[in-house]
Design a protein around this nucleic acid. Sequence first.
DNA 1: CGTTCCATTGAGATGTGTCAATTCAAGTGG
DNA 2: CCACTTGAATTGACACATCTCAATGGAACG
Lengths: 251, 251
Amino acid sequence: MSIPIINTGDGSNLVACTHDYQVKCGNCRLNSLCLPLALESEDIEQLDSIIQRSKPLQKSNHLYREGDEFQSVFAVRSGTLKAYKTTDDGREQVTGFYFPGEIVGMDGISNNTHASSAKALETSALCEIPFASLERLSTLMPSLQRHFFQLMSREITADQQLITLLSKNSADERVAALLLSISTRNSRRKLSATAFRLPMSRVDIGNYLGLTVETVSRVFSRMQKMEVLHVDNKEIEILDIEGLRGVADIG
Amino acid sequence: MSIPIINTGDGSNLVACTHDYQVKCGNCRLNSLCLPLALESEDIEQLDSIIQRSKPLQKSNHLYREGDEFQSVFAVRSGTLKAYKTTDDGREQVTGFYFPGEIVGMDGISNNTHASSAKALETSALCEIPFASLERLSTLMPSLQRHFFQLMSREITADQQLITLLSKNSADERVAALLLSISTRNSRRKLSATAFRLPMSRVDIGNYLGLTVETVSRVFSRMQKMEVLHVDNKEIEILDIEGLRGVADIG
DNA sequence: CGTTCCATTGAGATGTGTCAATTCAAGTGG
DNA sequence: CCACTTGAATTGACACATCTCAATGGAACG
């Protein structure tokens, strides 16, 4: 799951990726998940032409920070990002994790200012999509417009899902739901639904789920004892996915 | 704040509203908040032509239900709605309250299916905006497209605000934040920022904020004792708005 | 090999939930 | 107009899940 890094010795790292990271949308293995979804191939080329691919973002570097001028949304090609806000009293609130094929940055549209910060949890490759170009292209390509509306709406429903989770569910249920969400997103990318490496720390998980690190850790231990999970630091194996669903649904 | 109802004696009620509810966008006193924002007057007329105005929705009736086919978004002209989801185990989760000038129904775009239900908390007048027409018009009017993107993005940031609230804040802080949010939304509509009637029940407030009714009630009592609020059932008066902000920020 | 950060585990404190009783408000029918 | 009913809101006592504080263990990294 993790991306092999080649240390070039001069401080800059290169990512050895199985696919060229200048790959075009038409050839990208994520194009059935990502923005090109539902576009005709000639349309994909047009989309392709506005997308900027830059060198990978190293772990713990920011893609943008809260308050930065909003210019682009970003498609994750590899790696993982977290989005978070800093509250008035200086604490951090993680609002989402973004995996390959997902779009990050849409919360900046409303005010032309990023409402949250985005940080790489591991070295990540991104496609930058300048929003002005996307808007222009959307007026010409109704299916792109529609698809982008849908992506934003999906972000809304995902947030509402999280709201429900935070509002109604116990610690066990929350952790179970996150694991199942990651599992589902992995299988959409043809990766294992039952064994994966968590790209985020326990602190981030707790923060995202409204729990303390200690509680997250205890939940993992409990689930391991119940033989629902096998946990080895960040490596997770789901031993009993139905059991996990049972925990997530009612507890 | 509540809408006077004229009982016509035949079972159907008419709403006596200060403004004609067939009013066009161009004349609507909410047009500086609502969808027409940032449109030129000739554009507003075009938008106007796709909007359907129907008779008011009576209290506790549904605008749409979770799972219904998505066809339109709705602008609230008067009254208040709540949006809620029903969880797998049958409980309800309130995901938002919608006041005049706000748009409800955007979570249905992603799957062509409403992801939540919307119910009138009091008799409410609505403008129905068929989404297919809105999409068509958006390709012709870039400023409309942009504005709708912004409205969706605003919904995302609002949801993220709620996520933070649920994840990090105490009962007092949550209630304070909701009251301040209502206060702000009132003043945008040129209504009192300090005295208003809550359109929703304590149960709905608790549900929305991830608290029990009892806790909400105790918070109100506590704040009354601290002379921050004056509470008379649903009538709220904010006596010390700075104090309330203090509670919302750090407690 | 030490330093640092992250994760785990335990013991005790606490805010909020649960359960139950009471009051209050609004409507209904006699 | 007054009992009666019903649902909403308040208040109290107690329980419990999660947080807080503290110590330890383990992994990653220079």
